[in-house]
Design a protein around this nucleic acid. Structure first.
Lengths: 188, 188
DNA sequence: AAATCCGGAATGAACGTTCATTCCATTATT
DNA sequence: AATAATGGAATGAACGTTCATTCCGGATTT
C-alpha cells in the first residue's frame, strides 16, 4: 500500500497533465484523482515541479526501454527501422497519456536540466541508429534530424488522430504508413 | 494608437501563450508585455478565455490565408502539393509563435466550438486537396488523414527543430524534405 | 485665444477566489 | 506505547476580474 501511493500520484498526475497541461492541473485535482489527501502528495514529492520532472523522466525512461527492448541488433537496417517505427507506434498506442505528456512537455519552461538531457539522450539513440543507416548508404543525403522529423513527426500526428478518432488504427494502415516513411527516408 | 492596443495585446498574448501556455500565462504578464494596464485588457476582451479564442481564430485565419494565397489552381497536382508544403513551412518560419500556439492549442479544453470548427474548416482545405490527388490516382491507397500526418507532422516537428536550433533551415534541405514527403505519399 | 468642460480610454489598487504548500489532529503500523 | 503516515483544514501568495479614479484630446464657453 505504501509504495503504491507514489505510483498512484504519478499516474493521476500523468492523466491530468496530458489532458489539461501542467499549469491547468492543480495539486488538489491530482490528489482527488489519486484518491489521497492533498498533503500526502508532499510526503512523496517536494513540490509540484519536482513531481512533474520525476514523471517526465520516468515516462522518457519507459519510452526509451520500449524502443530498446527487442532491438534487432544483428539484423539488417531495414528491420531495425521497422522495429523503431512499430515500437514508437506501440508506445503511443499503449501509453497514449504518457506519449502525449512527453511531447507536450519537451520544451516546457518548468523542465529541469536533468529532464532535458534525459530526453536528449533518448533522441540520441534514434539519431545514432539513423546515422548507421546513412553510413551504409541506405538513406538519403539528409541530416539524421530530418529523418526524425519525418518519422517521429508522422507518428506523433498519427497518434493525435488515433486519440481523437479522426483515424482508426489498423494493421494494414500502419503497414502502409511504415512503408511511406521508409520510402521517404531511403535512398532512391 | 487606439486600434493598436487591441493588436498589441493579442501579440503579447501570442508570444506568452506560445512560450508558457495558456494557464502558465497570467493576465498581468500579458499586460506588462503589451505595455498596458491590466484593466485595459478588459476594455478589449471580455475575459481571458475570449481573448485566447479570438487569438486562435485570427491565427488560423492567417494560416489558412497563407496556404490559399497563390494556390496554383490550374497547375498539376504535383505543383499544388509543393505549394502547400512550402506554404506550411513558410508560415511556420515567418510566424513561429503563431504556428506553435496553434498546434499547442488545437485540442485545448478552453477552445470554444467556433474555434474548433474554424480549425476543422482549415484542415478540410488540406484534405480536399489531397482527395483530389487520390482520385487522380497519383497518391497511395491511404486515407487523406494519413497524408496529413506525414506532411503536417513532418513540418511541425521540423519547425520545432528550426526554433530550438537543432537543425538549420536551408533551401537545399527543405527541397530534400519536400521530395521525401512527396515520395512518401505518391503512388509507387 | 484662452480657459473650461466633457466623455471615453486607461489605469492599477482592491476584491473574492483559488492556488501551492504547510500544519496538525487522527489513524495505521510497528 | 511509540512512531510513521495520512487527509484535509489552514495559510499566504497570486490569480482573474472589477471599479473608482485619472488622464487626455477635442468641443464649448468666455
Amino acid at each position: 500500500m505504501a509504495e503504491n501511493k507514489h505510483e498512484n500520484i504519478l499516474r493521476a498526475a500523468q492523466k491530468l497533465f496530458a489532458e489539461r497541461g501542467y499549469d491547468g492541473t492543480t495539486v488538489p485535482m491530482i490528489a482527488e484523482e489519486a484518491k489521497v489527501g492533498a498533503g500526502t502528495i508532499y510526503r512523496y514529492f517536494e513540490n509540484k515541479q519536482k513531481l512533474v520532472n520525476e514523471l517526465f523522466r520516468g515516462s522518457v525512461a519507459q519510452f526509451a526501454a520500449t524502443l530498446r527492448d527487442g532491438f534487432p541488433e544483428h539484423k539488417d537496417f531495414r528491420d531495425k527501422f521497422r522495429h523503431v517505427f512499430y515500437r514508437l507506434v506501440r508506445y503511443s498506442r499503449e501509453q497514449p497519456e504518457a506519449f502525449r505528456f512527453i511531447n507536450a512537455t519537451v520544451n516546457a519552461y518548468f523542465l529541469d536540466e536533468q529532464s532535458k538531457s534525459d530526453f536528449e539522450g533518448f533522441m540520441d539513440f534514434i539519431e545514432r541508429h539513423l546515422d548507421e543507416g546513412k553510413e551504409a548508404g541506405l538513406l538519403r543525403d539528409l541530416p539524421a534530424q530530418a529523418f526524425i522529423a519525418i518519422v517521429y513527426g508522422t507518428i506523433f500526428h498519427l497518434s493525435r488522430m488515433f486519440e481523437d478518432g479522426t483515424l482508426e488504427p489498423a494493421d494494414e494502415l500502419l503497414a502502409g504508413i511504415e512503408k511511406s516513411c521508409w520510402d521517404a527516408v531511403s535512398a532512391v
